[in-house]
Simulated assay, not measured.
Amino acid sequence: MDKIEKFGRFVGRWFTLLVVLWAAFNYVLPQTSLWIVPKTAYLLGIILFGMGLTLKLEDFERIIKKPIPVIAGTVAHYVIMPTLAWLLCLIFQLKGATAAGVILVGSCPSGTSSSVMAYLAGGDVALDVSIETLSTLLAPLALPGLLLLFAGKYVAIPTTSLFVSTIEIVLIPIILGVVIHSVFGRKIERITKALPLISQVAILMIIGAVISANHANLFTASTALVIPVVMLHNLSGYGLGYLFSRVIRLRDPQRKAITFEVGMQDSSLGATLAMKYFAPAAAIPSTIFSIWHNISGSVLSSYWRNKTDNKAKSNSEKEQTFVLKNEN
């Protein structure tokens, strides 16, 4: 198990690069992951079951004890990202399944990798996990409702089917994971050490499946605008999330957590639902988002971490200088 955990940390360190390389490999050899296409919902269930296994009752108690930052972050996520997606579709005049795919990824709960980015940036990881948990639990209601509101003019929205599927794919695996963790307690902790690696492999498989399924339409004139739209969507989410957290006067670690929770989406869920209910082209924005937000999140977390380290170093040097002056 120690070797698996060590390998998981290695994969996590290079995950962004692996995502890019794996996507490129499947674009060149699209037949590689075609067999995964019908199984993406099961892979996402595995990821969310793993998330449930890592949750403790304390995570839910924290939401109850300190609800305001958690609720504020969750509301910001579900207001900012779908609205941004809708506005970008209007500005760039996206149509049909492509527009629906942009709005779909914008309506998803926050991404599972946001807590990693918050940790690397020195953010409030507990707040991050709480917002991620609440936004995911609300997904069966929020996602179909937001799609109906923002994407109804582009494609037909099967709200009932989306509601049921989101419960099956999202809620049931999470609840099952929480129950198993509650029943077995510490006995399950050895298994949870392997969960990051399992989740990363599952995400890579989903990305490979979507790239393979959309190989012919990935870089066509009709989807050429998706890349800048996705990049603007993600970066604007970071910016507005950070601005929102400043407006409500949260501390710096909390601002970092909310920035990642607003800007990063559960793109694996978006890709899975797009493949199931819409045209294959609707899964392209989620796939590009999955690749891009890992890159942008890594850059932003590194910037914040370096800024914190430099500030700490500067303060330490000032203290040493002050001590030396007093001694003299």
Rank of each mutant, 00 (worst) to 15 (best):
Phe219Arg: 09
Ile227Gly: 04
Gly237Ser: 02
Gln200Arg: 10
Ile248Asp: 03
Leu197Gly: 02
Pro228Trp: 04
Met275Leu: 15
Ala224Arg: 13
Leu195Met: 15
Asn214Cys: 14
Asp252Asn: 14
Ile211Glu: 05
Ser245Tyr: 05
Phe244Arg: 02
Val262Cys: 03
Phe278Thr: 03
Gly239His: 00
Ser268Phe: 12
Ile211Tyr: 04
Tyr277Gln: 07
Pro228Tyr: 11
Ile227Pro: 03
Gly263Ala: 15
Leu235His: 06
Leu204Val: 03
Met205Trp: 05
Phe244Ser: 10
Ala209Trp: 12
His215Met: 07
Leu232Ile: 13
Val262His: 02
Val262Gln: 10
Ile198Val: 14
Ile258Ser: 08
Lys256Glu: 10
Met264Ile: 13
Leu225Phe: 13
Ala257Phe: 08
Ala209Asn: 00
Asn214Phe: 04
Leu240Gly: 06
Ile227Trp: 15
Leu250Ser: 06
Leu240Asp: 09
Ile203Thr: 04
Asp266Ile: 12
Asn214Tyr: 09
Lys276Met: 10
Leu197Lys: 00
Leu240Val: 09
Val201Asp: 07
Met231Ser: 09
Pro228Ser: 01
Ile198Gln: 01
Thr223Ile: 08
Phe278Leu: 15
His233Trp: 07
Val201Met: 06
Gly237Thr: 02
Ala213Trp: 01
Ser222Ile: 11
Phe219Gly: 02
Pro228Val: 08
Ile207Glu: 02
Val226Tyr: 04
Lys256Gly: 10
Phe260Cys: 11
Met205Thr: 06
Leu195Thr: 14
Asn234Cys: 05
Leu273Thr: 05
Ile248Met: 10
Pro228His: 11
Asn217Ser: 14
Ile207Phe: 00
Phe244Ala: 12
Asp266Gly: 03
Ala209Thr: 02
Val229Phe: 09
Gly270Arg: 13
Gln265Tyr: 04
Ile203Gln: 06
Ile203Trp: 11
Lys276Ile: 14
Ala224Tyr: 07
Ile198Gly: 03
Gly270Val: 09
Pro196Met: 00
Leu250Cys: 02
Ser199Trp: 02
Tyr277Val: 07
Leu235Asp: 10
Asp252His: 13
Gln265Asn: 05
Leu218Ser: 03
Tyr277Cys: 05
Met205Gly: 01
Ala279Ile: 06
Met275His: 14
Phe219Asn: 04
Gly263Arg: 06
Arg246Glu: 10
Phe278Ile: 13
Ala209Phe: 12
Gln200Tyr: 02
Leu197Asp: 06
Phe219His: 05
Leu204Arg: 06
Gly239Pro: 00
Phe244Glu: 05
Thr259Ala: 09
Phe278Asn: 06
Met264Glu: 01
Gly263Lys: 09
Leu269Ile: 06
Asp266Trp: 12
